[in-house]
């Protein structure tokens, strides 16, 4: 029967693609490290250049792992939001979650200066960045949900997202006016987005948040599938709407919030990856969609990062610019090809 067709080949291909992109990402950059040497380093051996060991283990490996988590996490949070809000345009960036996170971080970085001294340093620890950003995105998502409960019009939700974006930039503008150049630069660099310069401790914190978010998503697969029929049908099939909505909101703000805290606001991944996955595997079943989005998100983000680090050169481009340059045309292409975005 048609329902039994497996997607084993798809997953094999995607897993292989992720591995290949992972190795390519590690190997390319300002210094090219041959794959054979890379293998030696990854399996604990000594390569011919000791500087290569250092570059791979302390710079490129944490960066590649961050890329995987960012791509997978943002993709899944976009997938969950599109189903929850029944809106194909939903995503962490469009709905203003990234703006909320930015606001949290702006208040922290630009506002912390006014506290000064010991308290200021305490506020700047990596955990406080994560908490400020996750809190920001959680509050925005709550606001969006509150609107969604009152207004059934899905366009209204998108407009709310846009409004949060404007409010964020306004508050950031006010804060920048009063803060010193150093803090301002720190914030601007954060807002460019960056996968690099992560300590292993940072990677571990991000890993915990992303895994927790993905696990909640995994346990919500059945409810997500029921929500494809709409809230009333889901209710009639025994789904507890309130609990499900709460779980999904926690998962998405955890994913989008922690990722934005570590890597900055990254556009289009959350919106585009779920659509690419749906187009490619032609199914709405979250049992297949969710793992595909995890793998595709990882592949696309590794690819973007490989481009951003500009092989054979000293330059590193802002990752946010690369994802927009790749993501925006993809969304336009999907729209033109299918005449409309479906979810």
């Amino acid at each position: 029967m048609i329902l039994k067709n497996t997607h084993r080949n798809t997953f094999l291909l995607l897993s292989f693609g992720t591995m290949a992109m992972f190795l390519l990402n590690l190997s390319l950059g300002s210094v090219n490290i041959p794959l054979k040497e890379l293998g030696t380093i990854l399996f604990g051996g000594q390569s011919t250049h000791s500087s290569w060991d250092y570059i791979v283990l302390n710079y490129r490996l944490p960066k590649a792992l961050t890329a995987i988590m960012v791509g997978s996490g943002l993709g899944v949070s976009g997938l969950i939001m599109q189903t929850l809000f029944r809106n194909p345009l939903a995503g962490p960036f469009v709905l203003g979650l990234s703006s909320g996170a930015s606001l949290g971080v702006a208040l922290l970085i630009l506002g912390a200066g006014s506290f000064g001294g010991f308290f200021g340093t305490l506020l700047m620890s990596q955990w406080s960045l994560v908490i400020a950003s996750a809190l920001g995105s959680f509050l925005v998502l709550l606001a969006v949900l509150a609107v969604a409960l009152r207004v059934k019009d899905t366009m209204a939700i998108l407009i709310i997202g846009l409004m949060f974006g404007s409010v964020t930039s306004a508050v950031v503008a006010v804060l920048s006016y009063f803060s010193n150049a150093e803090k301002l630069q720190q914030y601007v660099f954060w807002s460019f987005g960056s996968l690099g310069n992560q300590s292993w401790q940072g990677v571990f914190i991000l890993f915990l948040c992303v895994v927790l978010g993905l696990l909640i998503g995994l346990f919500a697969i059945k409810s997500l599938n029921a929500l494809l029929l709409g809230e009333n049908y889901a209710k009639s099939m025994g789904i507890n709407i309130k609990r499900t909505t709460f779980m999904l909101i926690v998962a998405t703000s955890l994913l989008a919030g922690s990722i934005t805290a570590f890597a900055g606001p990254i556009a289009f991944i959350g919106l585009a990856i779920p659509h690419i996955a749906r187009q490619w595997i032609s199914s709405s079943d979250h049992r297949i969609l969710l793992p595909s989005v995890v793998l595709m998100g990882a592949i696309v983000m590794l690819l973007c990062d490989t481009v951003a680090q500009v092989p054979f050169s000293e330059y590193t481009l802002p990752i946010n610019a690369i994802t927009s340059l790749i993501g925006a045309p993809v969304v336009i292409w999907l729209l033109i090809r299918k005449k409309k975005l479906l979810f």
Partner: peptide, 23 residues
């Protein structure tokens, strides 16, 4: 129940729609 509203996901196939009844 059979409601007046169509499933909110337009991408759903008939097989998937009917199979969801088993939830």
């Amino acid at each position: 129940v059979v409601l007046t509203e169509a499933p909110s996901s337009k991408n759903l196939s008939v097989g998937e729609f009917v199979a969801l009844g088993r939830q």
